[in-house]
């Protein structure tokens, strides 16, 4: 059953980890690591509003499209609000994020209770852990490689693969601009790079990655992957290009290792249904980061 059950889960987990880890590199350099956390919370009101707009009678595809667009718009609105509050100069960006995402999350919870959106499939558990274990890819039975099987791949995999491809192209094409804006926005601005717009583009791509991954792998994994792989790479190297490659490597090792632990090691210990794969991937990435940090820690002054 590896190709039907485990392979799509591994692929989906790796793609989600890699795309979040990719944008995490720039968040960490810009000291905005918590943006991933904030965005994965505001996805909730976006989904609820998207659901309410199309109504319960819509087809499944229309519903999914509307909720994804709603989530993306909510994430962009949150980014704009955070920037507005930060620019008053009174509130540091962390606190601005805290105010915005809790308010929007609370609005989502209230809307959910007040409307018939609560009938839709939004439960806490799914939001946290996603449905990584539930992905199946029947056509992959014959093994990967045949084009027919590829066309039949689950929609989540297609979605994340496309976002990842788009992200990778952006990073390769605009590496110079991203580097300047991440390390020295003032210098970037002086050199004619529109630093504020590049910053907003990074936030927007963070939102896109989070929304694409959220439904499939849950918010825990999204939040962890925006931080851990990039942070691991950051303590290991000074060079941006190497940091990006390392972050991708760590993300995929974390995803594969974590999934293996959840799917194979946990049942061996007597837990029949295993443990949440999304949570174990996040734990694995955290452990890899812990090892890297301990190995490179500075002495106490």
């Amino acid at each position: 059953m590896f190709w039907v059950n485990d392979f799509p889960s591994l692929l989906l987990g790796s793609l989600a980890a890699a795309v979040c880890g990719l944008w995490g590199n720039f968040l960490i350099l810009r000291r905005q690591s918590l943006l991933g956390d904030a965005i994965s919370h505001v996805v909730l009101p976006g989904i609820v509003v998207g659901f309410l707009v199309v109504g319960g009678a819509a087809t499944a595809t229309a519903l999914q499209f509307a909720t994804l667009i709603g989530a993306l718009l909510a994430a962009l609105a949150a980014v704009a609000l955070i920037e507005l509050i930060r620019r008053t100069g009174l509130i540091e960006s962390g606190a601005a994020m805290g105010v915005v995402f809790t308010a929007m999350f609370a609005a989502g919870v209230l809307l959910l209770e007040q409307t018939d959106a609560s009938k839709v499939h939004i439960d806490v558990e799914h939001a946290l852990m996603g449905g990584l274990e539930r992905v199946v890819w029947t056509a992959a039975l014959s093994g990967p490689g045949s084009l027919a099987a590829l066309a039949d791949a689950p929609a989540e995999i297609w979605r994340i693969a496309l976002v990842y491809l788009f992200s990778a192209i952006l990073v390769v094409v605009f590496l110079k601009e991203l580097r300047m804006v991440s390390f020295d926005p003032a210098f970037a601005e002086a050199s004619g790079v529109p630093a504020r717009w590049v910053g907003f583009a990074i936030a927007a791509m963070t939102a896109l990655a989070a929304v694409a991954a959220f439904d499939a792998v849950g918010s825990i994994l999204v939040i962890a992957m925006f931080v851990c792989p990039a942070a691991t790479a950051r303590v290991l190297t000074d060079r941006l290009a190497r940091q990006i490659w390392l972050s991708q490597l760590v993300a995929i090792i974390g995803a594969v290792g974590g999934y293996m632990l959840a799917a194979f090691a946990a049942p061996a210990l007597g837990l029949e249904r295993g443990v949440s794969a999304a949570a174990m991937i996040a734990v694995t990435a955290g452990l890899i980061q812990a090892v890297a940090m301990i190995a490179t820690a500075k002495r106490r002054q």
């Binding site: 962890a224 959840a262 949570a279 174990m280 996040a282 955290g286 452990l287 812990a290």
Partner: peptide, 9 residues
């Protein structure tokens, strides 16, 4: 994220 993931596991 790491502590929360341990908790969820």
């Amino acid at each position: 994220s790491s502590f929360f993931a341990v908790g969820v596991a």
